[in-house]
């Protein structure tokens, strides 16, 4: 079999339309919330910063070459924000889904790149930007959307209508597999940077104590300050972190391992949020790409329950 054939067979097998649409609803819904709760204050603050700090990111120079040397005007930035939010709503509802998602992804990338054009870059948003592009390029509005409702209304032949959870689309699988493959690369980067900067010395207990104290002062976290006193507990946590990040890729080859890695990852990111106040809601939400939702709901719908309670007095 040729390499091209293998490549196509891997990426373009049919997938459940429901899985992809469910991911669209969760990720777009979350991104709309992030836009209002985080991006808007961050944009307002960025617009107050001195122009000498403005160094547009490469992605801005590529997508908006005319803004490569001059800082965007505040009315343009805020205009882009509200258009992005509007298209976020239409993407969520599935109205002209692909077009809406394309505009939503494009504007989100530009807005986030603008926030990051003043010398300060963080990690949670990047994977969400790539996920939005993947959703925009895929049939993510095939079901659970206004587009799908219109299509169903136009369909006169009931025989052509099939149950929602059974609907398959040829291109519904690749965005999910893409994100499943992307996560291990992020964790790989995290563990490689730790081991190349300090070797296994990173897991000396002191490193995490240091970060707890750092974030306690930065974010006024009393819990981080309290936890920073427990040397051996944090040393143990460092080994867990290194093991988790270094072996997360196994989830691709042994899917059953998700029942260990996903709860561990949720605990991991939640503890980071509660103690270090570093929010990674996009990462936690994106774990949904590892769950076959259509199969899970089908299985649940077929489960039988005992009716004996009705018989008792």
């Amino acid at each position: 079999m040729s390499w091209l054939r293998r490549w196509n067979d891997f990426w373009f097998q049919p997938g459940h339309s429901f899985d992809l649409a469910f991911i669209r609803l969760v990720l777009v819904g979350l991104q709309c919330f992030v836009l209002l709760s985080y991006s808007f204050p961050a944009l307002t603050y960025a617009l107050s910063l001195p122009e000498y700090l403005y160094e547009p990111r490469i992605v801005t120079r590529l997508l908006m070459p005319w803004a490569a040397h001059t800082m965007l005007d505040s009315s343009v930035v805020l205009g882009m924000f509200w258009i992005a939010f509007l298209f976020g709503l239409t993407s969520f509802l599935g109205l002209f889904t692909n077009f809406s998602l394309l505009v939503f992804a494009f504007l989100n990338i530009l807005l986030q790149a603008f926030i990051y054009s003043f010398g300060d870059v963080h990690h949670p948003e990047a994977v969400m930007m790539l996920a939005l592009v993947a959703l925009a390029l895929s049939p993510s509005g095939r079901v659970l959307s206004i587009d799908a409702w219109w299509r169903a209304r136009r369909q006169r032949d009931p025989a052509q209508l099939i149950p929602l959870l059974d609907h398959m689309t040829q291109y519904a699988r690749w965005p999910i597999v893409f994100l499943q493959c992307f996560f291990p690369l992020m964790y790989l980067s995290a563990v490689v940077s730790k081991l190349t900067k300090g070797g296994f010395d990173w897991a000396n207990g002191i490193s995490l104590q240091y970060y707890m104290i750092l974030e306690a002062h930065k974010n006024d976290s009393a819990l981080a300050l309290y936890v920073s006193q427990f040397h051996y507990l944090l040393k143990f946590a460092e080994y867990i972190v290194l093991t988790f990040q270094a072996t997360f890729f196994l989830i691709l080859f042994f899917p059953r391992l998700k029942w260990i890695y996903l709860p561990l990852g949720i605990i991991f990111h939640t503890v980071i949020y509660v103690t270090l106040r570093a929010p990674f809601p996009q990462w936690i939400a994106m774990y949904i790409v590892y769950i076959p939702w259509a199969l899970a709901f089908t299985w649940l719908a077929q489960k039988k329950v005992s009716d004996s309670a009705q018989l008792s007095p």
């Binding site: 948003e125 990173w202 490193s207």
Partner: peptide, 28 residues
């Protein structure tokens, strides 16, 4: 992701493709 192994930097120059060097330095 693997650039630091070969002496490269895992920076944010190409955001949204970037290195995830979070809390990565060791301390004494």
């Amino acid at each position: 992701s693997i650039a630091p192994v070969f002496g490269g930097t895992s920076g944010s120059r190409y955001w949204p493709i970037l290195g995830y060097a979070m809390y990565s330095r060791s301390y004494s």
